[in-house]
Write a protein that binds this DNA or RNA. Structure first.
Lengths: 249, 249
DNA sequence: GAGTGGTCTAGACCACGGT
DNA sequence: CCGTGGTCTAGACCACTCG
């Protein structure tokens, strides 16, 4: 009878740990500070290392921690606000300040892309690779798919691939009366090449932003941009100025 | 000398497994089909169950699988396109078809919310809880924070909390000339209450959509909506019609 | 080479859904 | 009740960074 509500719902250990660590981060650590190593933390909390790691993974997913092999675990700065809409920064012009073209070639896109562009499977398109940097850190890798019919006046290039070719394609695109439509965001995991470009391991969580660029007549290009989910907050309003996060205080 | 490129970069097992399983899902399984259980799959691939689970977690993160304790692992349908912008569905009116008010009270918001609303810490605000359903499945849980000054004419209620009170607050909000601004999307993990509402476990990955609603004069309300990251694709264009995903074929 | 996080193993037990 | 996925353990070894 005298049961005084003893642990109605026994929370998983890793979840409780996450909470405890989260509060410790708020009150006892500063941005950039290095945490004790995993083996020590596990011992200190009396759990197996795997359990401790499960808690750290959560916090990394939430953008609170930054873990690097061979280095250690550090307290992450607040997420960077990255403007992706409505029609602003992601615009496919040659190097603005945020996007930098890294390469381009002419090849067959994935089947799903061909479908979206209403092209027969296996049709080659221009594939432009760009990378986005913010505050000195790489935040996004983009693949821009441009059907040949969208850039009929592209000059024959002596460099079959590379940044120069990419810029040439982007210049041609600017001649079109483009409208960005059907932007969508979903969670994904970084493929090996994206991961390398974003300085992460394969499988790292990313936010995939898909954008259709249309002319009045047809779909002129398709952009698939993968943003680091741990460090980025994607903003769509007219400014990303208003801050929500603020490490308590 | 005669080294013929033997595994230049030994891929992690779980990543390779993810790829193999992903291809198997494309070619040998149909949506809704139940996979063999984890112990069997692990044995079949000759790996420990933990490793197999790491691969399954990746696929679940990518929205390819659906795992339920006590039931099994099934092939997930393609992600649902959920419209969240620019000014459409997420509008805080009383029950439209997509949002359903579930409750409301007057209480002090988290410090970060108070800051964003430019209120002194500890100031009580109306907190309206809503839930969003799509295709019969819960996809989002929202907390809408409304300062008392935004709804001065709210009638005194005999029900101090509950759906009726929530609808009353939402009705009052409609009297204002609201504009949605500074919408942002970031990755988060579901807190215990959100998780329950979304039929997931605590810590499940979610897409957190933060929206500021402003009048010409000031910030009138703040919405924090958490969407299931595994089942949703958030769309911002004028329609979510154009499909990108299509299980190869 | 020393120290870090990343991967992997082989087991155990628990919580939940259906029968 | 049984079978499922979820949690947890105690170890081992690997890949990486840095002094």
């Amino acid at each position: 009878m005298g049961t005084t509500q003893l642990e109605t719902v026994p929370e998983p250990k890793y979840w409780h740990l996450r909470t405890v660590l989260s509060e410790a981060l708020d009150s006892e650590f500063t941005v950039g500070e290095v945490l004790p190593n995993e083996r020590e933390l596990a011992a200190r909390f009396g759990v197996a290392r795997a359990t401790l790691r499960q808690a750290l993974e959560q916090l990394e997913l939430e953008g609170r921690l930054h873990r690097r092999r061979g280095v250690g675990t550090t307290v992450a700065p607040p997420r960077v606000a990255v403007e992706v809409g409505p029609e602003g920064t992601a615009w496919p012009g040659p190097d603005d300040d945020t996007w930098q073209a890294t390469g381009s070639d002419l090849s067959a896109p994935p089947a799903a892309v061909a479908t979206a562009l209403a092209l027969p499977r296996g049709t080659a398109v221009h594939v432009v690779r760009r990378s986005r940097v913010s505050h000195g850190q790489p935040v996004a890798a983009e693949l821009l798919y441009v059907p040949e019919t969208s850039v009929p006046d592209l000059p024959a290039s002596d460099t079959p691939s590379g940044a120069a070719r990419a810029r040439a394609v982007l210049r041609e695109l600017q001649h079109l009366d483009l409208t960005a439509r059907n932007r969508s965001v979903e969670l994904g995991s970084a493929r090996a090449d994206d991961a390398k470009q974003l300085d992460r391991l394969p499988g790292a969580p990313v936010l995939v932003v898909t954008t259709h660029f249309t002319t009045p007549a047809r779909i002129a290009a398709l952009s698939v941009a993968t943003y680091r989910a741990d460090t980025c907050r994607l903003t769509f309003g007219e400014s990303g100025r208003v801050e929500i996060a603020e490490g308590v205080g």
